[in-house]
Structure formats: structure tokens, C-alpha cells
Amino acid sequence: MKILLIVIPVVSLIFALVNGRISEMSAGILDKSGEAVELVISLCGIMCFWCGIMRVAERAGLMEKLAKLLKPIVNFLFKSTKNNAKATALITANLAANILGLGNASTPLGITAMRELSNGSDSASDDMILLAVMNTASLQIIPTTAAALRAANGVSKPLDILPCVWIVSVYAAAIAIISAKVMGKLSRKRDRNE
């Protein structure tokens, strides 16, 4: 991440100079700072709402029940969640919200799950990376955005691409999980050798 924070701006500056887009880049920097605030504000309400509802569910004992439901799968993929029912439940809820296409609910749940997985270290754990990476693969059953875009462009059957979307989504999610697992193993091996 530290390297990326230097490399991306430098590479961008070079491309902007070559492409003659320095004024766009200047505007882009200012726009994005504002956009970050807008993103957090738009997230703030639903974040409060879902964290509130999840706390109610937790005190009512619903989180343990939810955790039990997908426990074998979540514990298999996320090694550090074995003795952490809250993290298991939050990850389950996050993935379920993704699959159902409830983007507004999945982000707050995912963020809360990330904080539950954190031990305060400034280095990401394998489980944190796996959760983030699984969230970058779009696992939803009905691709609502794509369908809406197609309908707006005069496609008569916007959902005829469903099987294709499913195959590509499952492929991308599988590759994301496998590469996270393999890269995790490689990085541990490297650490041991040093």
C-alpha cells in the first residue's frame, strides 16, 4: 500500500503530462477529496442503522444463530474465526447481503466484520484480505445495475445474460479466493525464510 501511494501518483503525473491532461488531473484531485466526504456521508446513515440493528440482534442472541448457519464454510475459509462467533456472523451476513444484491447493507456489515477481525496491527491479516477480496468479486444473483443499464439502452431482454454473469462471477470469486490463499502461503513462506 505504501509503495502504491507513491507509484500511482507518479505514474499518473507522467501519463497526464504525456497525454496533455494535467488540467483534468488537477480537477480530479479536488473532486475526489469531495467525493470521499460524500461517500462517507452517504454511508453514514445506513452504517448507523445497520450497526444499530446488528447490536440489537447481538443482544437478542440472533448473531450466534446466524453464525451457526454458515459456520462450517466461513470457518473453513476464514481461519481466525473459529472461536469468534461475532466475526463469523458478520461475515455470513456480509456475504449473504452481497449475494442478495443488498449493496447498502453489505458494506456496513463488511466494515464491521473487518473491525472485528482486526487486532490493532497495521498489517492486514490473511482473513482481512480474504474478506476484502471476496467483496471485490461481485457475487450477486441478479445483476441489477447491468440489467438497468441494458434496459435503458433498448435491450429487449436485459436479463438474457444471467447465465453468463453467473459463470463469470463464480470464476472471478474462485480465482480471488484461490489467489488470496496461494499468495498468503507464499508470503508466510517468505517471512519464515528471512
Binding site: 480471488a176 489467489s179 507464499l186
Partner: peptide
């Protein structure tokens, strides 16, 4: 968004793994 929430500075192989899929 996910790593800002946990104040992680070293994301290790998160970006390479996600981009391999994409």
C-alpha cells in the same frame, strides 16, 4: 473502504489477489 476502516497500512497481497481475478 474496507482497509480504511481498520487503519491498515500494509495491505500485503490484497491488491494483487483482487486484480488477478479482475
Amino acid at each position: 473502504v474496507y482497509f480504511s476502516a481498520v487503519k491498515v497500512k500494509k495491505t500485503r497481497y490484497a491488491v494483487p489477489a483482487a486484480l488477478t481475478a479482475d
